[in-house]
Every structure is written in C-alpha cells, then in structure tokens.
Design a protein around this nucleic acid. Structure first.
Length: 555
RNA sequence: UGGGGUGUAGUCAAGCGGUAAGGCAACGGGUUUUGAUCCCGUCAUGCGCAGGUUCGAAUCCUGCUAUCCCAGCCA
C-alpha cells in the first residue's frame, strides 16, 4: 500500500530559511544540528526537534549534524549517548558525517576563551557561588561589579592557565565574560564561561578540569560546525544576545543564527528528562523503555512506528506560541500508520466459552481469510474452526441494549471470518456470571450473508482448542491529570495512574501468532494495535497493546 | 517593581491591509464480515479588551489586560 502523504504543517523557520536562500545568505547553504546533552533518554519532545532539524536539512539539500552537548560530565554517560544514537537512527534519520561532540572542540573553545581574556572581554573571578549570586542583583535590581573585574589581562591569563592546569579546587575560581552587570537581561551580567570540575569525562577522560558553560560552548560549537540555523526552544530566547556576543567577539569561523520555537507539550504526559529519570529511579516504571514512557525507546517498545512519529511531528505546527498538544493526535498518527501496515489477527482477552452445539467435536475446519481487508498483497492466513471457541465477555449481553450489534440470548452474530451463530442458551453460575454460551451455526453463511434474516454484528473469536495462550499488557495513560506538573502544590507523581498497566496473564490468540517475532505488530481485530514485547520467552509470548481502535460505540 | 515572549473555535494553529486555511476532538450521514478503515457533511458575523487610522483592520497606531520565561559554577 502506498505511503500516505502527510500534510506538512506551517513552520516559520522554514519561511525564514526560504527568505535567507532567496537573499543568497550563507552561500545558499542550510546547516542544522540536533544537539542533545547525553544525560537522559530522548523523548517525544526531542522527536519534534529531530524531525525539524533533520527535516529542514533534507528539504533544502542541507546538512544536519548530531552533536552531543557534553559540557557537564557529572550528569552524562555513554549509555545515554548510545541510546540517543539508536533513537535517531530508528526514527529514520542519518546525521551528517560522524557524530560530533562539543568536547572534541574543547581545545578550540579554550583558545576562544583566551582570546576573550586578551581582548579584555573576560576575567578570572574569585567570588564564591554565594557571593556571585549577591553581586548578580535581582530581576529588578542591577548587579554590582565583581571586585576581580578589573584584574589585569596578564593576571587573568595566568590564573586561567593555572585553573586549566588543575591548581585550584572546584568552585575556587571561574572565568567570566565582561559584559554588563546592570543589564536588565540577567544572562548578560558577566556570565560564567568556564568553571573548574575535577571530574572524569566520558569522552575526554582526565584531560580537562575546566569545562565551558552552555552559552559559551553551544553557539561557538555551532560556528565551528558551520551551522546556519540553530534551532532551540523558547526559554533560550533571552540567551540570544549572549549567543551573538560570543560569536561577535571571538574569531568564530562562521555566524550562525539562533531561532526559538515552542517546545512540544503533550497533555497527560511529562516531558522533562529530570522527571522521567525520577520515574525510572523510583521504579514507578520499569525503565526508560517502559512502554508507558513518552521516551522514544518506550514508544518503540510500545509499538509506535518511526513513520507514525515522523508524521505526527510533520503535522505539528512549529510556532512561537506555547500550547498543549492533545495526545489523541499522537494516537491518531499511530493508528493511521498501523492501519495500512499491520497484519490482522484475532485475540480474545477476556474469554467466554461458546459451544457450537450443531458442530461435531471431532470436526476441525480450516478457514482461509485475508491478512488485511484492503491489501491483498499481504496474503491470507488460516483460522481453526472447532466446536468450542472463545469470544470476548464484552461481546455478549444478557440484556442487549438498543442498537446492540453483538451476541445476546436468541440473537445472532457472525464470528468474523467464519459462520453466523445464534445464541440459544446461556449457562451461568450461582451468582449469575456467564460461564458458557450454547449456540448453533448456520451452514449457509460462510463467506455470504444469510438469505432469510439479517445479521448486523461481527464478533472476533478464537478456537478453544487450537490457540496460542499469550500474556497481554494493556496500557493506559501514565497520569490521570491532564497537566501532571501544572499544580505547584503537589508533586507530579501524585497523579500517576495506578491502573496504567493491566496484565492479562492468559489471553488467547489465533495460532498463527506463534510465528511472530519480537517487535512484530498486529491489529487484533476490534481490539486495537498490538506488538510482541521484548519480555517474550520461548514459553510465553508477551504482547503490548499499542493503542486501541477508535471506538464510536463507547466503552 | 526590570527584561524578553505569547494571546485567533473544545484544542493546536494558518493568516503579514481586501472580507477567517488546515489538523485533532466532537456531532450527523453513507459504505463495510473489524461499532475499525474509507467517503461525505456540520463545527468563529468573528481573531484577549477598549479606543484610533482607513473605503476597508485579526493584520497598522495607542492604552489596558491575561499568561509564560529569566536571578545554576545545569542545558
């Protein structure tokens, strides 16, 4: 089946690039970058950034690099680097050249810092963190100059060299840019550009004990890579003057421009690496790849597809106004992609036994049905029809409501792909719980409508004797509250949904599923989309519910 | 009380002086051996509020208001 074309939502960055190109800026080049800090797993918010940066580069025949913004070794690790690379690749993007590391620019960056000192635009400051905070002033009051601000160039040069050589303890001194302590923009009040950290770095080992701060490192790394359009989120808007200041005051090899857009917010979801890490560390979920997590690895395990995520991102407008996107948009992107790709199968999650009284117990019939109702290139599959079958408890009602299209006493329904059956008798236990349905089948209804009566319902089923018992994990949203961290009075973990995972230890799938391998996706007809989980063993297949089908009947 | 942003339907948004795109959600209807998919249709006399400029304003001007971000040696 052909790939659907996805509507590309508006994108103000795209417009800016088109104008730049029209004016011949940047020699007609477009270069972007995706710059994660390797301090956690990527989530749905990063997916929008990835799609934006790689997508823009692809659309304008440009390049997009993957650069690890690894300036804070304390929180970073190789595990995160590996997961990030895997996630970007899985999404279907290829970064330009080898992956980059800001840490591999440390020599150049250090040189830029020296250059600033030589120009009298940076100085070594001995203020303690507490003192520095006092000197910084507040949002409404200007800051005061540090007593070390007028230190001579020679002294700062010497001190910075000794900082770099490891002569001072963590926090003893910092290198600061000399800008304006009275600026209404806090970022310009002599920001710190290097701090001392005697700590092993996952890439550079013990080579350095001074590490550059984000503002200094990021823009200049962009300049080193020849990035033309540096796209980040809105909270960095106030940093832009600083971004430009560093590039203007150092012999930067190019002049990238920063553009900010509103990060993606999803309702019923938390997207903050810190909070996601908290969920993992507190065992509220089983790991970064728990299928309930909004991480890329979690969504992958849940059964979301790269195309679904890409389509979702492409259809998400890139704007400068903040808004909360409805998760239903994500879910509809998943359904939309899986509908055409997922083979169909049947699985009964909550069984009631049905005995077809006019079908012989030793008669086992093979039915051949299409794998996909609209795509015959996907072939056919076999179902086993026997005297005893299971249907779902939800598909039978003692008292059929109005417009009921399923089974009920004296009512008929088709067992999908098989015959029409009529329920003649209901066997219940002392409490009235339905134990078994006694039905008769109509032999003239295989592959055709009954001649003298109408059947409006179709119900999924599986043979009670020829099936594959599986464990099914049914997921619901992780949080009950639409805005988990919208209330400052309570911790976001207080609105964790206690029923976000329901384990059905024994469900019954059609036999054909036995050949499925980990990651294989299916549509269980009338139930939803499912995939085989990594927890599956030779003895027990574990299946995740990715998302339900749209349901206009209601639950 | 400083600075920087943003307010268009339930929701997210386009719109850039010429008479309010689109998506999701919702609601009707058609097809259907999945209450799915698919297909049709409905959904802003109005763009945060109040003035002003103009033949004409969501778009320009003035004032107001709401809301978000910034005082890490985090990114």
């Amino acid at each position: 089946m052909a790939e659907k074309t996805v509507v590309q939502a508006s994108n103000f960055v795209r417009n800016i690039i088109q104008e730049d190109l029209a004016q011949g800026k940047n020699q007609g080049l477009v270069a972007t970058r995706f710059p994660p800090e390797p301090n956690g797993y990527l989530h749905i918010g990063h997916a929008t950034s990835i799609c934006l940066n790689f997508g823009l580069a692809a659309d304008f025949s440009g390049t997009c690099t993957l650069r690890f913004d690894d300036t804070n070794p304390e929180k970073e690790s190789d595990e995160y680097i590996q997961s990030i690379k895997r996630d970007v690749e899985w999404l279907g993007f290829e970064w330009h050249g080898e992956e980059r590391y800001a840490s591999s620019y440390f020599d150049t960056l250090h040189g830029f810092a020296v250059e600033l000192i030589e120009k009298g635009l940076a100085y070594v400051c001995d203020l303690s963190p507490e003192q520095a905070r006092e000197y910084r002033g507040s949002l409404t009051e200007p800051g005061k100059n540090s007593p070390y601000r007028e230190r001579s160039v020679a002294d700062s040069l010497d001190l910075f060299a000794r900082m770099t050589a490891g002569e001072f303890a963590d926090g003893a001194k910092v290198l600061r840019a000399k800008i304006d302590m009275t600026s209404p923009n806090m970022n310009l009040r002599d920001p710190i550009i290097y701090r001392i950290r005697h700590i092993h770095h996952h890439q550079t080992g013990d080579k350095w004990c001074v590490y550059p701060m984000y503002d200094f490192c990021h823009g200049l790394s962009d300049a080193i890579e020849g990035v033309t359009h540096s796209i980040c989120t809105l909270e960095f808007e106030d940093h832009r003057p600083l971004y430009d200041w560093f590039i203007a005051n150092v012999s930067a090899p190019s002049t990238p421009r920063q553009y900010e857009f509103a990060r993606l917010e999803l309702n019923y979801t938390v997207t903050s690496k810190r909070k996601l890490k908290q969920l993992v560390d507190s065992a509220a979920v089983t790991g970064w790849d728990d299928p309930r997590m909004p991480t890329i690895s979690g969504m992958r395990r849940r059964g979301y597809t790269p195309a679904a995520l890409r389509n979702f991102c492409a259809a998400t407008p890139v704007a400068r106004s903040k808004g909360i996107t409805d998760v239903s948009r994500l879910e509809s992107a998943v359904r939309d992609d899986l509908d055409s790709k997922a083979p169909r199968a049947m699985c009964v999650l909550d069984p009631i036994k049905v005995t077809i009284t006019n079908w012989s117990a030793d008669d086992v019939k093979t039915l051949v049905v299409p794998v996909h109702p609209k795509d015959e290139t996907m072939g056919t599959r076999e179902l086993t029809w026997t005297r005893e079958v299971y249907i779902d408890r939800a598909d039978f009602a003692m008292q059929a409501p109005r417009k009921w299209k399923r089974l009920a006493p004296q009512q008929s329904a088709r067992l999908r792909g098989g015959y029409v059956v009529t329920c003649n008798q209901v066997i219940t236990d002392a409490d009235g719980k339905v134990l078994e349905l006694l039905c008769t089948y109509d032999e003239n209804t295989l592959g055709k409508k009954p001649e003298d009566y109408k059947v409006n319902g179709v119900v999924h089923w599986v043979s009670a004797s020829h099936n594959l018992p599986v464990e099914v994990r049914v997921y619901d949203r992780l949080f009950n509250d639409e805005n988990p961290d919208g209330n400052k009075e309570r911790d976001f973990t207080e609105c964790l949904n206690p029923e976000s995972l329901q384990v059905i230890s024994q469900a019954y799938a059609e036999l054909g599923l036995a050949s499925g391998t980990v990651g294989q996706q299916y549509q269980f007809e009338r139930e939803g989309y499912f995939c085989i989980d990594t927890d599956s063993t030779a003895d027990k297949m574990v299946i995740n519910r990715t998302v339900t089908l749209r349901d206009s009947w209601g639950k």
